[in-house]
Nucleic acid binder design. Structure first.
Length: 276
DNA sequence: ACTAATGTTAGTCT
DNA sequence: TAGACTAACATTAG
């Protein structure tokens, strides 16, 4: 379940492996992953001859800069990238294969098949879905705190749901929302309309601190996440509430509780998370 | 052997 | 229109 820190770690490890390589051919074993262009055959036709010049990240999206195009990739739950010699045995659940002219290939694997890829002409990637509605993530230098606060304050939804909304703030998923709200001392069921400016400032600060620490630790590995060099993350050791149900809160000793919020498992300390 | 839970986003319904 | 709900899918825990 890659969120911002995992996607950023994937970006950092993957760019060393593929930047400068030129695509020779593409194979697609699960066409639904290719969302744009509409025709998968066209996707396969456009790629050969394209060189990967850089990999960027926006929220949880990876953007592969090519000679003439940009490939926008979302890993959803279980998507993974790896680079292997062409002769290496194909792993299970490999759905898209980019073969390079140097005899290696970039393989996209995804047990759940939820991941997506969109190919755009260079410069057009922000004008259409999936990126057109995406908010800035809090690690971007042009993240506008006031815009975030305005959006939250006029929403009647609970803050847990608001923080998961990628059009309000990008990059947070279920794990980092719970950790952020714990650090900010805010109850996950607080409505956006009930949050003070101070609480919203704490939420932004907490999100930045949590995400930066997680990036420094190479992300969080709960079940299956590994970066593009097959390494797990280490931030799971730092989790204060996510997956800590019934364990004593590190601050007050009260047991961490787990509830359902709109169907999502939600962890919090009932004693420490009361400030609005 | 069945059922529920897992997490992210787009699309649909109200 | 904002918000709630569900589908897309596979695996695993109970």
């Amino acid at each position: 379940m890659p969120e911002l820190p995992e996607v950023e770690t994937i970006r950092q490890t993957l760019r060393q492996l593929v930047v400068g390589k030129t695509v020779e051919s593409v194979a697609v074993h699960w066409p639904k992953i290719i969302q744009a262009p509409d025709d998968v055959e066209q996707f396969k036709q456009l790629m050969p001859g394209q060189t990967i010049t850089e990999i960027r990240r926006k929220g949880k999206f990876l953007l592969f800069d090519l000679t003439d195009y940009v490939l926008v990739s979302h890993l959803r739950m279980e998507g993974k990238y790896g680079v292997y010699p062409k002769k290496d045995k194909m792993q299970d659940h490999t759905h898209v294969i980019f073969s390079f002219t140097d005899g290696t290939e970039l393989r996209y694997r995804d047990v759940r098949k939820f991941g997506t890829m969109h190919l755009f002409e260079k410069g057009k990637e922000l004008l259409d879905k999936p990126l057109v509605q995406l908010a800035k993530d809090p690690l971007e230098t042009d993240f506008v705190i006031d815009l975030f606060k305005e959006k939250v304050k006029k929403s009647t939804r609970v803050i847990k749901n608001i923080l998961l909304d990628q059009t309000v703030i990008a990059g947070l998923g279920n794990i980092y929302v719970d950790e952020t709200l714990y650090l900010a001392g805010v109850h996950p069921l607080t409505k956006g309309t009930d949050l003070s400016d101070k609480a919203l400032d704490r939420i932004v600060d907490a999100a930045i601190e949590t995400l930066e620490k997680a990036v420094a630790q190479g992300g969080t590995t709960i079940r299956s996440y590994v970066n593009s060099q097959g390494q797990i993350g280490m931030f799971q050791q730092e989790l204060k509430v996510y997956g800590q149900t019934e364990k004593p809160c590190q601050a007050c000793g009260r047991p961490i509780e787990k509830i359902k919020v709109s169907g999502r498992g939600t962890h919090y300390c009932p004693n420490c998370q009361t400030q609005a």
